[in-house]
């Protein structure tokens, strides 16, 4: 953690991303005190940005900024839940497959390959078709599509650590496999897992928005960025800001997470003595 905190100031994009996400998270947490995303003012439907409504109003006269803020709550909660599910299932799979190898590795990784072969959005849509539209379903659907990422990253790191002296030493002193996995391997495998967490959070937000955009996300009137994009697209002629502003917030959120993820990867590589190759060298013949 200290390495990350020390390294972050050198990555200005990541700092801006953290600031943006911080403001967004705060607004989402205290949204209930600030605004009502469901209050309809039918006489003010589809108005552009104004002093009263900074982002304008939607087709039912609801404040778009209020819905964007509440939408952040939806997106961030979905991302957090999805990452938790993916990590809770994917990390143990990767640890077991990488540590034990053999038939366990074969069975688990083929299962992961099957999951990976399913297009994430189609898999999520199929699950929603079976379980129905709700935030919980979206969260589970997005989470399950994230399992392969965690499993593969964790397995790769475990394979590398499995033959290191400190792991072999624990075994030589009679440490159990469970002890070795969770007290020796896992604490040393956190770096790529942390990066994967940030990457998956961005993917989860995007996937949740995509599901809502396709009309299978969280049902209205619950605000969702994807749903706002979907509806806003319909009113693009009448009120361009309706789709553009929520889309901008979604883009900034994804960019922020991406910048943070890249910064983390860079910091962790540097701390391991590796350095990013300059672009010219990487592309040189």
């Amino acid at each position: 953690m200290k390495r990350i905190l020390n390294g972050l100031p050198r990555h200005k994009g990541a700092c801006l991303g953290i600031a943006f996400l911080g403001v967004l998270a705060l607004a989402a947490c205290f949204a209930g005190l600030l605004v009502d995303p469901l209050a309809q003012d039918l006489a003010s439907a589809l108005e552009g940005p104004s002093a009263e409504h900074w982002f304008g109003t939607d087709e039912l006269g609801r404040d778009i900024l209020a819905r964007v803020i509440y939408g952040a709550r939806t997106s961030l909660l979905t991302a957090a839940g999805a990452v938790a599910i993916a990590a809770a299932l994917g990390i143990p799979i990767g640890l077991i497959a990488g540590y034990f190898g053999g038939w366990r590795d074969t069975v688990l990784m083929r299962f992961v390959d099957v999951l990976l072969a399913l297009p994430g959005i189609l898999f999520a849509m199929a699950l929603i078709a079976v379980l129905g539209r709700s935030q919980a379903t979206a969260l589970v659907a997005v989470g399950l599509t994230g399992i392969p990422g965690f499993a593969r990253v964790t397995r790769a790191e475990t394979l590398a650590l499995r033959t290191r002296e400190f792991v072999l030493a624990v075994e030589a002193f009679g440490g159990s496999s469970t002890y070795s996995i969770f007290r020796t391997v896992l604490p040393n495998a956190w770096s790529p897992i942390l990066v994967q967490t940030v990457v998956l959070a961005a993917v989860a937000i995007l996937l949740e928005a995509a599901l809502a955009f396709l009309g299978v996300g969280i049902p209205p009137p619950t605000p969702s960025w994807g749903e706002m994009l979907r509806t806003g697209k319909t009113y693009l002629y009448d009120s361009p800001s309706y789709a553009v502003l929520p889309g901008l917030v979604l883009t900034l959120t994804i960019l922020s997470l991406d910048a943070i993820g890249r910064a983390l990867a860079s910091i962790l590589r540097e701390s391991e003595g590796l350095h990013d190759a300059p672009l010219a060298e990487a592309g040189a013949p």
């Binding site: 039918l42 087709e59 299978v216 049902p219």
Partner: peptide, 16 residues
């Protein structure tokens, strides 16, 4: 009807 824009709008209006 999630695919019918008027239905989605008027259902939310009635809900309110």
């Amino acid at each position: 009807n999630s695919g019918d824009e008027p239905s989605v709008v008027i259902s939310q209006l009635v809900q309110s």
